[in-house]
C-alpha cells in the first residue's frame, strides 16, 4: 500500500507537467531576457505591442522547447502534449484577460483592446486555434485524460469552436459582400458578434428573448469567459488524470 496520498500524487504529477524541471536557470534567464527585450521593444524601439510580445514569446520558447524535449524522452508524447496545451491555452486565456483589462479597465475602444498579440486577433486564428484544442483533447482523452472534467471540457471546447466556425463563415461572407462592393474588409468586420453575446444570433432569435449575460455581454467578455471556462476545466481534468498519464508512460518504459 502506497504511503503517498492521492492529493500529493496529483500535485506532484501536475507540477511535473508544468515545472521547468532541471532547467530552472534557463527559464529564469529567458524570462528576464524576455522582459527586458519586451520593454526595449515597446518603450525604446516603439514597436507595436504584438511585435514585442512575439519577441518575448520567442525567447521563452527556447527553454520551453528544451523542457518538452526532455519530457518527451521521459514521459512520452501524451504528457508533452498535455503540458503544451496547458501552457498555450494558459497564454491564450491571458491574452483574452488582457483584452478585458484593455476594454473595461483602461476603457480603450475595441480596436485598441485586442490583447498583446493584436494582429493574431482575427477570425482565422481563433477558428484554427480552437479546433486545434479540440484535436488535442480528442487525442489526450484517447490516451488517458479520461475523467468527467475532461468530457465536460471536450463539450465546452467543441461548443466554443462551433461559435468560432459560425463567426468565420459569417466573416467570409461579409468579406465576399464587401469585395463585391469594391471595399477591402475593414477590421470591424472581424469583430462582429457570434452566437452568444450582445447582438449575437441568440439575442436576435425570437425564441429565447434576452438572457442577461448570454445575450447582453460584449464579444470581448463572452470570449474571455469561453476561455476562462476552458482553462478551468483543463486544469481540473489534468489535476485528476496527470498521475495516471505519467505512470502510464513509465509503465511503457
Amino acid at each position: 500500500m502506497s504511503i503517498i496520498t492521492q492529493p500529493a500524487r496529483r500535485s506532484a504529477a501536475f507540477w511535473t507537467l508544468l515545472s521547468p524541471g532541471d532547467r530552472v536557470l534557463w527559464f529564469v534567464a529567458a524570462a528576464a531576457a524576455a522582459l527586458v527585450l519586451w520593454g526595449i521593444a515597446v518603450w525604446r524601439a516603439h514597436m507595436p505591442l504584438w511585435g514585442a510580445t512575439t519577441i518575448a514569446i520567442g525567447v521563452l520558447a527556447v527553454p520551453a522547447t528544451m523542457k518538452w524535449r526532455t519530457d518527451f524522452q521521459r514521459y512520452g508524447l501524451t504528457a508533452v502534449l498535455l503540458s503544451m496545451l496547458l501552457v498555450m491555452q494558459g497564454f491564450h486565456t491571458l491574452e483574452h484577460f488582457s483584452q478585458v483589462i484593455q476594454y473595461y479597465v483602461f476603457n480603450n475602444p475595441p480596436y485598441f483592446s485586442q490583447g498583446l498579440l493584436s494582429t493574431l486577433n482575427n477570425e482565422w486564428v481563433h477558428f484554427t486555434w480552437n479546433w486545434i484544442v479540440v484535436g488535442f483533447l480528442v487525442y489526450l482523452i484517447r490516451n488517458g485524460l479520461r475523467n468527467r472534467w475532461a468530457w465536460v471540457l471536450l463539450v465546452w471546447a467543441f461548443a466554443h469552436s462551433l461559435e468560432h466556425t459560425y463567426m468565420l463563415i459569417r466573416y467570409l461572407r461579409i468579406v465576399r459582400e464587401l469585395s463585391a462592393l469594391g471595399v477591402t474588409a475593414p477590421p470591424v468586420a472581424g469583430s462582429l458578434p457570434g452566437i452568444l453575446g450582445r447582438d449575437g444570433w441568440l439575442a436576435l432569435s425570437s425564441f429565447c428573448g434576452r438572457i442577461p449575460g448570454l445575450t447582453t455581454s460584449s464579444r470581448i467578455a463572452i470570449h474571455f469567459w469561453w476561455n476562462f471556462g476552458e482553462m478551468a476545466l483543463l486544469l481540473a481534468a489534468v489535476w485528476v488524470s496527470a498521475p495516471k498519464i505519467l505512470e502510464k508512460s513509465k509503465t511503457k518504459e
Binding site: 459569417r170 461572407r173 461579409i174 459582400e177 463585391a180 471595399v183 475593414p186 470591424v188 468586420a189 447582438d199
Partner: peptide, 10 residues
C-alpha cells in the same frame, strides 16, 4: 445581421 446588410454597414 445578414452578411449583405452588415457589409453595407461595416
Amino acid at each position: 445581421r445578414a452578411p449583405k446588410v452588415l457589409a453595407a454597414w461595416a
